[in-house]
Simulated scan of single mutants.
Amino acid sequence: MTQSIAPSNQTKPLSRLAKILYGLVGGLALAMGIIGIFLPGLPTTPFVLLAAACFAKASPRVHLWMLQHKLIGPMLRNWEEHRSLTRRTKCVAIGSMSLMIAISIWSFSGQPWIQLSLLILGGIGAATVLRIPTRPPSATSSSSSVGKP
């Protein structure tokens, strides 16, 4: 007897608990992203992208609000359209992470285990950014009107 397998593009609706959990994680990620705007060393973009992904599953209304927001909307629309980063964005991300890691390592002088931990975490962060596909220079964002009425 053969089993019927549902096509991969069909997904089961999320349970109420799953929507609540996605909403909580999305809210926490958005809060961390907002804090990251004002706190040097705390990234903003990854938290905003995580929040958008969570709200896309938990609350389409909040996801649409994020897409239409004047500050974070263009970044989200650009990510959703291309699923890649520009070379400039990668350089800025890795450069700012490197600077903050270097300052942190310097501030923990005399504590080699903390310094080594910071160096390893910085390497993981850089590797994560480098794994994201790099967008060719010709691919510009044409999604400036996506999600707007």
Results as ranks from 00 to 15, higher is better:
Met100Val: 08
Arg87Ala: 13
His69Gln: 11
Gln111Asp: 11
Leu64Asp: 14
Ser109Cys: 11
Trp79Thr: 04
Ala58Trp: 02
Ser138Arg: 10
Ile37Phe: 07
Pro74His: 01
Ser59Gly: 02
Ile124Ser: 13
Leu50Met: 06
Ile103Arg: 04
Gly122Asp: 09
Leu99Glu: 07
Arg16Tyr: 12
Cys54Phe: 02
Asn78Pro: 00
Thr44Gln: 04
Gly41Val: 02
Pro74Arg: 03
Gly95Arg: 03
Leu130Gly: 14
Ile72Asp: 04
Thr45Ile: 13
Met66Gln: 03
Gly122Asn: 06
Pro46His: 02
Phe108Arg: 09
Phe38Ala: 08
Gly26Lys: 00
Leu71Gly: 05
Gly125Phe: 07
Arg16Met: 07
Ala93Cys: 08
Arg88Glu: 12
Arg61Thr: 09
Asn78Lys: 12
Ile72Cys: 04
Ala6Asp: 13
Gly33Met: 01
Thr140Ile: 10
Ile94Glu: 06
Met32His: 04
Thr128Pro: 05
Ile105Asn: 05
Ile72Leu: 08
Ala127Glu: 10
Leu21Glu: 07
Pro137Glu: 10
Ile114Cys: 14
Gly147Ala: 08
Ser142Asn: 14
Pro60Cys: 01
Ala31Gly: 11
Phe47Leu: 00
Arg83His: 07
Pro137Ile: 06
Ser142Pro: 09
Gly123Arg: 04
Val146Ser: 13
Leu42Asp: 01
His82Gln: 11
Lys70Ile: 09
Thr2Ser: 14
Leu14Pro: 03
Ser117Gln: 09
Val92Leu: 11
Leu71Pro: 01
Ala52Asp: 04
Ala51Asn: 00
Leu30Ser: 01
Leu121Met: 13
Arg131His: 10
Thr44Val: 03
Gly73Cys: 01
Leu21Lys: 10
Gly26Cys: 02
Leu50Ser: 10
Ile37Cys: 05
Pro46Trp: 03
Ile94His: 04
Leu21Phe: 06
Ile72Ala: 07
Arg131Tyr: 11
Ser15Val: 07
Thr134Asp: 09
Leu119Trp: 14
Gly147Glu: 07
Pro13Tyr: 07
Gly26Met: 03
Gln68Val: 02
Thr89Asp: 06
Ala53Thr: 05
Gly33Ala: 03
Pro43Asn: 00
Glu81Leu: 09
Phe47Cys: 05
Pro136Met: 14
Arg61Ser: 09
Phe47Met: 07
Gln10Leu: 15
Gly33Arg: 00
Lys90Glu: 04
Gly95Val: 03
Ile105Gln: 03
Arg16Lys: 15
Ser138His: 13
Gln3Tyr: 12
Phe55Leu: 01
Gly23Ile: 00
Gly110Ile: 02
His82Pro: 01
Leu116Cys: 11
Gly27Lys: 00
Gly73Gln: 00
Ile114Trp: 13
Gln68Cys: 06
Pro74Ile: 00
Lys57Met: 04
Ser98Glu: 09
Ser144Lys: 14
Ile5Asp: 09
Val129Cys: 07
Gly26Trp: 00
Leu119Asn: 06
Arg16His: 14
Lys70Gln: 10
Gly123His: 05
Ala58Gly: 06
Pro149Lys: 15
